[in-house]
Design a protein around this nucleic acid. Structure first.
Length: 487
RNA sequence: GGCCCGUUCGUCUAUCGGUUAGGACACCAGGUUUUCAACCUGGGAAGAGGGGUUCGACUCCCCUACGGGCUGCCA
């Protein structure tokens, strides 16, 4: 697994990402709304923003879009933060709450009013709803044109009003998108969107623009469900005379059947993947390659990804999730992982999945076993399965399949083996001749001897190499386990 | 309904007018082997359909089909 790296190794550590010198420092952001867990698609969007900023010495900001008070919850915010943290996507500065910036949003809405790029609209929600219903019934496309757009202020009633943006009625708005290319939207298909609700709270369309501007966001990398919104948001930038950021609208992730990823496809939340035991580094690699490519690069570290990542490599079509490839990618990362870091992540996984923590003694054995265990596991459950010879304690109960290999003949061989192991020096070089000889004496291939050894040492028929296990658990424990099995 | 976006092996993709259409995962066959995995070798596998443009189209244009998104005083 280790040898399969397709990218040339780049001499850098994850802590010192490459810094490219661009004219202005790059600022990206991830701006989820806290209405649930962190969706895997959101995780990928965050990852792209993170890679882009970090690869250019820029800043990656996090803003929670919690202006919808009905649906936003602190639990959801916490879940999103946990998800990002697990994925290893660290953000710069404080988490910004959009809701807390509502006064600033209202201020901008009133500035637009003063500039004449917005107006007070006294149409009630009932009137608008009635209009829509009527239009749809008549088979028309309901673009609500407020009668208050050009009304004389002296005719304004003393009633609640919303503030609507005075959008251009003709011409077209052009979005220069780094992923989608040049997208042209005819202005007549867009209505005068509300920027400030009649209760004085800002709408999303206004809030994003104001926040992105105030936070100095230079590159907006987000899902392409916002592509159409970009046109309206661009109007706000224009209305305020602000510089339009670089747009990059990335396609959404689909399920294996090509439909939008939803619950029925299985895991949609980042934390579910954590619970399934995928290592974060592998997850990052897989997600980076999902809908993005740089030549034939497949397996790479995050530092390498930062170096390579660019907006041009993002595909225009939605990509489907492929668990087999995810696993394979994770397997490479397990094998590549630093032992200490991997042990740390393993312990975190065990805690998160409610397993009994390692005892100090097990922890010591685990550290000895890590170098070979990590080479053959793709996920933490698989890793733990292979490490079960460490977790068991004597007397070891052989499972049904391995017990079958402990027949009378085999037990006899094990019995004859113990004195020899007892006096052996405990290295693979010394052990190898002893075991092969024991097999030969009984007219067996080593394979036939390995099975009862596995049963005795691990109680299973599928285990790591018998030598590896013996070296990890040590001489006394090995002998004791063999005795247990042969008595 | 309208508008916008998309469509290369089963999947992720490379190609940026001229390639035997390349790689990876998955799959199949063989090898190695101490079980699983890993590893090695080989194999099958693709330009949605139809029109153009061009000496030449996967690449450019149009139409159709299919998929997706938006069309809220949600984000």
């Amino acid at each position: 697994m280790v040898s399969k790296r397709l990218m040339p190794q780049m001499p850098m550590s994850a802590d010192t990402p490459p810094a490219r010198s661009d004219a202005r420092p790059v600022v990206t952001r991830f701006a989820p709304s806290p209405t649930g867990y962190l969706h895997i698609g959101g995780g990928r969007t965050a990852l792209f923003n993170w890679l882009y900023a970090r690869g250019r010495g820029g800043r990656f900001l996090l803003r929670i879009e919690d202006t919808d008070r009905e649906r936003s919850t602190p639990e959801a915010t916490a879940a999103i933060l946990r998800g990002l943290t697990w994925l290893g996507l660290d953000w710069d500065g404080e988490v910004v709450s959009q809701f807390e910036r509502r006064d600033r949003h209202a201020e901008v809405a009133h500035q637009m009013l003063a500039r004449g790029t917005a107006y007070k609209c006294y149409s009630t929600q009932e009137e608008i709803a009635a209009f829509r219903t009527a239009e749809e019934a008549a088979g028309r496309y309901p673009v609500f044109l407020s009668p208050w757009r050009d009304a004389d202020p002296s005719t304004h009633p003393d009633a609640p009003f919303s503030i609507r943006m005075k959008a251009p009625r003709s011409g077209e708005t052009v979005i220069e998108d780094r992923v989608q290319g040049r997208v042209v939207i005819r202005n007549e298909t867009l209505d005068d969107m509300i920027v400030l609700r009649s209760d004085g709270t800002p709408t999303y369309m206004l809030a994003v623009v104001v926040d992105d501007h105030d936070m100095g966001v230079t590159h907006v990398i987000r899902g392409d469900d916002h592509l159409n919104n970009a046109a309206r948001q661009q109007m706000v930038y224009d209305a305020m005379g602000w510089e339009i950021p670089v747009w990059a609208h990335i396609p959404l992730i689909h399920g294996p059947d090509g439909k939008k990823l939803s619950k029925r496809h299985g895991a949609t939340g980042v934390e579910e993947y954590q619970a399934m035991g995928y290592p974060a580094a592998g997850m990052r690699n897989y997600l980076t390659r999902l809908g993005w490519a740089k030549g034939d690069a497949e397996i790479f570290t995050s530092a390498e990804a930062m170096q390579m990542f660019d907006l041009d490599g993002i595909g225009r079509a939605p990509a489907r999730l492929d668990f087999k490839k995810l696993e394979n990618t994770c397997g490479h990362h397990m094998a590549m992982a630093d032992d200490a870091a991997l042990l740390h992540e393993l312990i975190a996984y065990m805690a998160a999945s409610g397993r009994t923590p390692l005892t100090p003694a097990q922890s010591v054995l685990m550290q000895k076993a890590l170098p070979f265990l990590k080479k053959s596991a793709k996920t933490f459950p698989e890793f733990l399965e292979k490490a079960s010879f460490i977790m068991v304690s004597r007397p070891i109960r052989a499972d049904e399949q391995s017990a079958a290999s402990l027949d009378t003949v085999s037990r006899g061989i094990l019995k004859s083996l113990t004195p020899r192991l007892q006096s052996a020096s405990w290295t693979k070089e010394a052990l190898e001749p002893i075991l092969t000889q024991a097999a030969a004496e009984n007219g067996l291939g080593f394979g036939k001897l390995a099975a009862p050894l596995r049963a005795a040492i691990a109680g299973k028929s599928v285990t790591p190499s018998v030598y590896d296990m013996m070296l990890v658990i040590g001489q006394d424990e090995t002998v004791a386990r063999l005795k247990d099995a042969s008595d």
